[in-house]
Design a protein around this nucleic acid. Structure first.
Lengths: 196, 196
DNA sequence: ATTATGACTGTCTGTACTGACTGACATTTT
DNA sequence: AAAATGTCAGTCAGTACAGACAGTCATAAT
């Protein structure tokens, strides 16, 4: 239905692997299953990647998302608390959702493949730093109450991270509250709480 | 080291299974490994549980935690926003941390074993209802600003859920911010934002 | 235009191993 | 004596991966 045939075999395999491993876990999927899902033979899979491990690692290599966020955050700040938090929240959810399969994998397999967490879940630390800096500067400008910017940033990030995690799998966990409404209200809460 | 030998074989097996499956996933652990970790033979495992599947399901059966939270929440409310949010937040983290292994499992295996999410991650919905009701009543008492109580409750729960998820595995992800400090600041934020 | 070459893919077969699970019998614990 | 456990051997299915060989198709050489 959406499988455009214009993809290279390499990419078809990567796509299928990401899809299936995100759903059933690395040990829950066989190389055979990945290959047939990609519309290719198992042999082709091994010719391209050599091993199942390397297939997953190749998938991770063409996978970033923190850089994108960092750039957008720094470019589009206007130093108005509500506007900035809104933009940060929206950008965050958009990018996280675009990469949701990959993030699912990194969550499920972090016990098995050491080093994966470093490349995904640990990276939010960089986002934290950006947001902390932002709060610090806003504080100096007198546009923010004087408390602990780091914990404020953490609270905001955790709220968005939690919301993202919540509808990662069953993406209709709280169907009564659509994402956009959540974003607006939650930004409102932080704006009210943090403006002097 | 902490394996008190007073446990029944049944429980030793359950404990070992929970520990290992939480770490490596259901498909990442063999019955052999579980048994030897429990200090028993593989045969004993099958004599007790019949199958690997049933072992996991038995583990889930002696596992609740939502009831406990509901009771505590309803008992200890004092209808002061800050005090109540603090108590809710602390209780939530305490109970979630006590059951962290089980929750890790339910997150990792939800793709494989249908029905597990219903018993764990979906249950927060009940918590949401309690908190929403609480906010609604507080609103009627004039102790809360008039906006959408459901989304407020969601924001608060997601913030705590996100924080819990964040240090689920690498429980030193943000070592600079200890849990208690996070709880206090985040409750402060919501208190400031929601009091009229 | 024909042929040759090389890159890519499929199929079939096979190997070495792992893992869930069973049965028979001996041993320990209570 | 009875119940719980260990040992050992074994079955059966799955699984990662390799080798041999053939087909397709584009491009390059003739």
């Amino acid at each position: 239905m959406n499988k455009s045939k214009n993809l290279s075999s390499h990419d078809k395999l990567l796509l299928a692997a990401i899809e299936l491993i995100a759903e059933k876990g690395y040990n829950g999927v066989s190389t055979m299953e990945i290959a047939t899902t990609a519309g290719l033979s198992e042999k082709t899979l091994f010719r391209h990647f050599g091993s199942k491990q390397n297939l997953l690692e190749s998938a991770f290599d063409r996978f970033h998302y923190i850089e994108e966020m960092k750039k957008l955050f720094n470019e589009k700040l206007v130093w108005d608390l509500q506007a900035d938090l809104l933009m940060i929240s929206r950008t965050y959810h958009e990018i996280m959702n675009r990469n949701r399969k990959m993030i699912q994998i990194s969550i499920k397999e972090e016990g098995n493949m050491p080093g994966f967490r470093e490349r995904t879940q640990k990276q939010p630390q960089q986002l934290m730093e950006i947001l902390t800096d932002y709060f610090t500067v806003m504080c100096e400008k007198g546009k923010l109450i004087r408390t602990n910017p780091e914990v404020q940033a953490l609270s905001f990030m955790m709220m968005n991270f939690g919301a993202f995690m919540n509808d990662l799998e069953s993406n209709a966990n709280f169907p009564t509250v659509p994402l956009e409404e959540f974003i607006m209200e939650s930004v409102q809460i932080f704006t009210r709480a943090l403006t002097p």
